[in-house]
């Protein structure tokens, strides 16, 4: 079971991870975007962590909603509304509960990822964060169907997201700012797919 405390630990871990990986993400973004992804993610998750420490949410849904609104306010660019939408859509699916079971974990990640796909109008292969989210959500479902517990599901999802991130390397971008580069976007890892892989790796470390 993923408890409220574990969800809080996930956000705390993301604060640390994005602070550590700030330059890595910004360097990826400098190659095919506008070189601010790492800075934006670090700022956003520091603020989200601070928000849930300052006013501890009473349940998982409230925590996800608080994170959503903080990211929407503080991240900016394209990734602010995209990650904001993930948490915004995941919040009501989790609901006012103190812990979420395996079915609930799958449902909230699926709803959040579907929100990102809808907002970004992207599909797997467009060289966006969906290239990490799509396989991750599929892996969550497959793992649960095979009887996996939350920890097994998130391990599978994190691995699938990392593979999806690596698979963006040879692709030509079809969405976002990188799409204007056409062929020149080939040979670079998508920064959004990289930040998504980090988000799911942190989920595996904390939620399961």
């Amino acid at each position: 079971m993923a408890t409220l405390a574990r969800f809080a630990a996930w956000i705390a871990r993301l604060d640390a991870v994005y602070a550590e990986q700030k330059d890595y993400l910004t360097d990826l973004d400098a190659a095919i975007g506008d070189a601010d992804h790492g800075i934006n993610m670090a700022r956003g998750f520091a603020a989200a962590h601070q928000a849930i420490v300052a006013a501890p949410p009473a349940d998982v849904g409230a925590l996800l909603k608080a994170v959503a609104m903080t990211l929407i306010r503080t991240v900016g660019g394209a990734s602010g509304p995209l990650y904001g939408t993930f948490f915004l859509r995941a919040a009501p699916v989790a609901g006012a509960v103190a812990e979420v079971d395996a079915a609930g974990v799958e449902a909230l990640f699926a709803a959040g990822a579907a929100g990102i796909a809808e907002r970004g109008k992207a599909v797997v292969g467009d060289k966006t964060m969906i290239d990490a989210w799509g396989p991750a959500v599929e892996a969550l479902g497959a793992s649960r169907a095979a009887g996996g517990a939350v920890a097994d599901m998130l391990a599978a999802a994190a691995a699938a997201a990392a593979a999806g991130r690596d698979a963006t390397l040879p692709l030509v971008a079809r969405k976002g700012r990188a799409s204007y580069l056409g062929e020149r976007s080939r040979g670079h890892i998508d920064p959004g797919a990289a930040s998504t892989a980090l988000l799911l790796a942190a989920a595996h470390e904390t939620l399961g």
Partner: peptide
């Protein structure tokens, strides 16, 4: 950026 922020 504009489209995503306005949609949200």
């Amino acid at each position: 950026g504009d489209v995503l922020n306005f949609e949200t």
